[in-house]
Amino acid sequence: MSSISIYLNSKASGGNNKWVEEVQKQLFRHDILLKAPPSKEELYRELENDIKRSVDHIFSVGGDGTANCILQKIAKTNTKLLIIPCGTANDLATEIGMGKSIKSLIKAFQHKTYKRIDLIEINGKYMATNGGIGCAADVAGKINAYRSGIFGFKGLMKNLGATVYPLIFTKELLIGDLKQYNLKIKSSEYTEDLKTPLILVNNQSNLAGKFLVAPHTKNNDGKFNVTIFKHQNKKDFLKCAMKILSGSYPYSDKNLVSFETDSIEIEEANGGNLPFFGDGEILNQNSKFNIQVHERAFSVSALLDDVDYSNSYDLAQVRLV
């Protein structure tokens, strides 16, 4: 029997009641605690108590933002994460094959198959999927503001799903000027002072579900991808962005710089504060970001390609990759 704490995000756009009921039904033999902390501070206190009690599993019921909050506390511990995807993009759940299927979740948990995943640290905050600086961070901030401040926007997000991000992103590009950010980039692979509308930091290949931003990036190799958009006019940037949003990658775009690294420093040239978004949330606002990878920093329940989930399972067998 496993000890499980299930954390609910009541604000997640995908809803969660049916998921929780089914999980409780399927895993009734286990020691399950259901929690819905009213604030981030209370969430962190509950997680710290779980870690002290050596809870086996944390179930995150929500989106990438909910999982991100949980990872801040369980990173580099023995507590394992299982994601029940009820958010907008659900990038991490999609990447590890845990899409919106209760059968997938139960199979992975019952067979005890896990994947060890890298975390990217940005000024003391962890990120598991994708993030960056520039116009995409501005869009992430606006969407979160719309969700809390505009009546009905949460329902719209539920209906649109991950497509809400490219829709808002495209709208902002079409109606506004292409804002440039003066940044200083320092890493062992690439160093330059430049102007850019967007820098992405990627721990996986896809962003917002299906947009290919880093085709060769993996989340368990001790590296992360940095993609710099050096476009100086809206037309060229839009052309590049639309190709990515169509599911392709602009390999021939000379204004695109992409490389793999394990650490990088990004600084605003004039000392101004910039927002850094990650896992769909604004993680930090600063003039300088020290970014590094923590290799295989946490365990998450995942469906593995080489496991036959149709067969009976041995509860003593654990697969960790």
Rank of each mutant, 00 (worst) to 15 (best):
S5K: 09
I6D: 00
N9L: 07
K18I: 13
V20R: 00
E22Q: 11
E22K: 09
Q24T: 09
Q26F: 01
H30F: 10
D31E: 15
S39H: 06
K40N: 11
R45V: 09
S54N: 15
G62D: 09
T66G: 11
I70S: 01
N78A: 15
K80C: 08
L82E: 11
A93Q: 04
A93G: 05
E95L: 03
I96C: 02
L105F: 01
H111N: 04
R116H: 08
I117A: 02
E121Y: 04
I122W: 00
Y126K: 01
T129C: 13
G131S: 08
I133H: 00
G141I: 12
I143R: 03
N144A: 14
S148C: 11
K154L: 14
M157L: 15
L160N: 11
A162N: 12
V164W: 02
Y165I: 05
F169W: 05
K171A: 14
E172P: 03
G176V: 03
D177V: 12
I185A: 08
I185V: 15
L194A: 07
K195T: 13
S205G: 08
N206P: 00
L207K: 03
A214P: 07
A214C: 10
T217F: 03
K218E: 15
K223E: 15
V226D: 02
I228S: 02
F229L: 08
K230A: 14
L238P: 01
K243I: 14
K243H: 14
L245M: 15
L245G: 05
D253Q: 02
N255E: 15
V257Q: 05
F259C: 00
D262M: 04
I264H: 02
E267T: 13
N270D: 11
G280F: 07
I282L: 09
K288V: 07
I291G: 00
F298P: 04
S299K: 11
S301T: 10
L303G: 08
L304H: 04
D308N: 15
Y309D: 03
R319I: 15
R319H: 14
V321A: 11
V321W: 09
